[in-house]
Design a protein around this nucleic acid. Structure first.
Lengths: 343, 343
DNA sequence: CTGTTAGCGCATTCAG
DNA sequence: CTGAATGCGCTAACAG
């Protein structure tokens, strides 16, 4: 019974037309050009619509050339708060335009990115927002040239082929380092993910810039430590051991996101090193819980929700056609709390 | 120039057929029945495909009756970590089946839910996972009867009309209260959102059950305090004031999620009340940061990712047809940390 | 203001 | 094993 009950009849314009005693094009008109149809005819058709249980078939209308109401976004990980909040911003802006969002997580795997982009294109989505895995963007520009609007998310604009919305990561890295330097730290470990996505590379560059701007030697103050699996306590702890083995030993560690910062703090504690007394730690993102951690986390704030909205705005504009490719760049903000202190 | 470059030609099977010197149905065969076509013909067609830049049109194939590869999920808020992680589980399971997920946040607004469900249905999605706003489920069962598989998410099965995947919220509420009672607390404030979604109501019921099971009077030990905007510090602080004004004053507060628990702790601190010394606080969800908060949060853990995967599994099975409606129920787990202590 | 006609791109009979 | 014809549900001309 559970089976038969699903064979229900989703009726279309034909059934409505029959039930209302008009032709299909009249039905189409009450749907798309309500003013071109007599008031009482329209009433009759509308009645018929919910009498027969009419539900529009978007596939058919899309096949006919109407724009799709779905937009795709391809992110590194939708469960990561940075992306989750950004996606929420995208979703809200799209909803205002009557569109929906399909969310795709790549886990920084190039082939997953490729597969998702391909599927999205096959679906004929209105456009795609991508936080790209690699720095090779030609695949994306080709996608754009084939007719699917693309906007780069959390990635600076490459040339002028694509729209982009991002937060200034170079500046973010610089802010973090400047803060640490101003506190007197001269040996800093830069704990990063093993993969090299553009936003992270930019932060690293910003950190170097910051050191140089202070008249110091990056090679001496900054040491990059890679963590294989940033969401695994074990992997982070292992990276922390590498930090502690450094000679001379760093007095501060700069983490590429708050989640990792938290694990670093935990590993440090387990090794009897307090934060900030034994080591200063700075995060990135200013996640919702950052202020309540023990210690409250010094970090770099990013306007995630606004970023998402802005990105969606760009996409919608581009899909509407005929606008020049633009770049929106937000500024990150240093939030000083309790996990850093003078050396 | 940026405009013209987008008018590109997405070629279809016709162009491929022409380029390969075969008919469209042969192209269709290499796509859908590769074995029914001679090896070299197939090679020729495949060459032609990427020579002309072929991209399959899913709208057309769906119109022909093929199943859609997109699934919808309608949640209260995708930026909430509980839902974000659940959605990630859904997404991953769907990806294994070659499907994608559109994520819709209702913010507990019935009309947003209605609109999203309608759009999803119009798109002819493979199925829909819903964490419903209201307790009136008839709209959903009708949706299912019209042919779109529906599975309830974070909501127990209502009768036998729909599949459901959830965590036992009654049990969760009970666990929380039992813990508090075992610590000697006899006055407990139950701080909840103003809206009444089923999962929250169930937790409240579980809390009452727990009190009764201990042979106490719910009316005396439990007081519900509603917070208008659970994500707003002001609104939570205001609720905390109401808790503190209660006579006799509660010695523990039970929060409907970790995010609110955190704000409660903050508000309490601002009023000079320490946690757990001046007040015990228990959260719900065991969010990623719960263990590192100050104090580490006692809370109820939910298996979000697995929940998502299981829900997707149910949906896929139902969409494949002919199975009985099932319910999957996970067990929540009490995680005792530092925010609660004996009275 | 309403009806008739002709496809959109693809999968699928049925012939050859 | 391959090709020609048909229609999925809808929109957009055009005729009446």
């Amino acid at each position: 019974m559970s089976v038969e009950s699903r064979v229900a009849t989703r009726s279309g314009m034909r059934q409505v037309a029959a039930a209302a005693g008009v032709s299909v094009s009249t039905v189409s008109n009450v749907l798309n050009n309500p003013d071109r149809v007599a008031t009482d005819t329209r009433r009759r058709v509308e009645d018929a619509m919910d009498r027969v249980g009419f539900v529009r078939n978007r596939a058919a209308r899309q096949l006919r050339g109407m724009p799709s109401a779905v937009v795709g976004c391809v992110l590194l990980d939708s469960a990561n708060l940075f992306f989750a909040e950004t996606a929420r911003g995208i979703e809200d802006r799209l909803a205002e335009a009557g569109c929906m969002l399909v969310v795709c997580s790549t886990d920084v795997r190039a082939e997953r990115e490729r597969d998702y982009l391909r599927m999205l294109e096959e679906h004929g989505v209105r456009g795609i927002l991508v936080s790209p895995v690699s720095t090779r963007l030609d695949e994306l520009t080709r996608l754009g040239q084939r007719g699917t609007p693309v906007v780069l998310l959390d990635h600076p604009q490459a040339g002028l082929d694509l729209c982009a919305a991002s937060v200034d990561n170079v500046r973010g890295g610089q802010l973090a380092v400047e803060h640490l330097l101003s506190l007197g730290h001269r040996r800093i470990a830069d704990v990063r993910a093993a993969f090299d996505v553009r936003s992270l590379a930019d932060r690293g560059r910003g950190a170097v810039d910051g050191v140089v701007a202070a008249g110091l030697d990056p090679a001496e103050v900054l040491t990059t430590v890679r963590v294989a699996a940033p969401t695994s306590d074990r992997s982070v702890a292992e990276a922390v051991d590498r930090v502690l083995a450094l000679d001379p030993r760093p007095t501060a560690v700069l983490c590429f996101n708050d989640d990792t910062a938290l694990r670093v703090v935990r590993a440090l504690h387990q090794r009897g090193i307090g934060v900030p007394d034994g080591m200063s730690v700075i995060g990135y993102d200013d996640v919702r819980f950052a202020a309540e951690l023990a210690p409250p986390l010094t970090t770099i704030r990013q306007p995630t929700y606004r970023l998402g909205r802005a990105a969606a705005e760009l996409l919608l504009a581009e899909a509407d056609g005929g606008h020049l490719h633009q770049e929106v760049l937000f500024r990150p903000e240093l939030i000083v709390r309790g996990s850093t202190r003078p050396v």
